Computed example of a mutant assay.
Amino acid sequence: MGVISVDVTKDGRRVVATSIDSHIRIWDLENNGELLKTITAAPIEAWAVTFSPDGEHIATSSHNGDIHIFSIETGEKVNTFTTKEKFLLSVTYSPDGKYVAGGAEDGAIYVFNIETNQLAHTLTGHAMPVRSLTFASDSKTLISSSDDKCIHVYDVEHGQLASTLTGHTDWVLCVAANPDISKQQVASCGSDKRIKIWDLALRTVLETHEVHTDQVWGIAWNAEGTKIVSCSDDKSLKWYASSGSS
């Protein structure tokens, strides 16, 4: 059945996907796409999925508000972080592996400290579902996108909303932080068919791309932080050079 979420390890060697059929599948990209492991999750247990920075675990969000951690080696569930039983549409790890965060349908964001197994912060501010989450490379800044047309930038260490970025005219479906920390950029895309690149320091839009003819559901940077790729309901993938790149 339909594929819901896909992620790739930092080294680019493995890919994981979740599906409506309640299976989590992991493939080897270096060995002709060989299927390495299939993990059977309970119904509605695995929605969004993300690899841990070391590639040894995956985290999934769920309909019942839990974040589940699975071991890549054994396929076993090794931990569960519980929230307030609201559907978590998004999940992400911090680059340093200290935090895992989930965004809920009621606009709340839950940040858990993996080292202590405790809830570090419940972040509020969004009025509608949180579609996407991404940590900046410093692991101290968490960026979220929501159906309320806003992008929020949070200070994770202090659990505070640092700024709100506005400019999209419809649901903001995905955000992705530039892996090059020196640039302090985040890319966003949404139901308004637009892609925007933001300067987090200046809290302003650097550029806007209007090249898709339908909703833009996903966006990602290359490892160097010089290019982005987007995917859309118009059945296309499009590549761009980011601001300041050739």
Rank of each mutant, 00 (worst) to 15 (best):
S139L: 09
S139I: 02
T141L: 04
L142V: 03
I143T: 06
I143R: 05
I143D: 11
S146V: 02
D147R: 08
C150I: 07
V153N: 12
V153S: 09
Y154L: 06
E157D: 13
Q160I: 09
L161N: 10
L161R: 12
A162V: 00
A162C: 00
S163H: 12
T164A: 13
T169Y: 00
T169Q: 07
D170I: 00
D170R: 09
W171E: 03
V172N: 06
L173M: 09
L173W: 01
A176D: 11
A177S: 13
N178D: 15
D180V: 02
I181C: 01
I181K: 11
K183Y: 10
Q184N: 14
Q185I: 02
A187I: 09
A187H: 07
S188L: 10
G190S: 04
S191L: 01
R194T: 12
I197E: 14
D199T: 06
D199P: 13
D199Q: 06
L200E: 10
R203C: 13
R203T: 11
T204L: 03
V205C: 15
L206N: 13
L206C: 11
E207Y: 13
E207V: 15
T208V: 14
T208Y: 08
T213N: 14
D214G: 07
Q215E: 14
W217Q: 09
W217G: 10
G218F: 12
G218H: 12
A220H: 04
W221R: 03
N222P: 08
N222A: 10
G225S: 11
G225Y: 13
I228F: 05
V229F: 09
V229P: 11
V229Q: 09
S232C: 12
D233C: 03
D233K: 08
K235G: 00
K235I: 00
K235A: 09
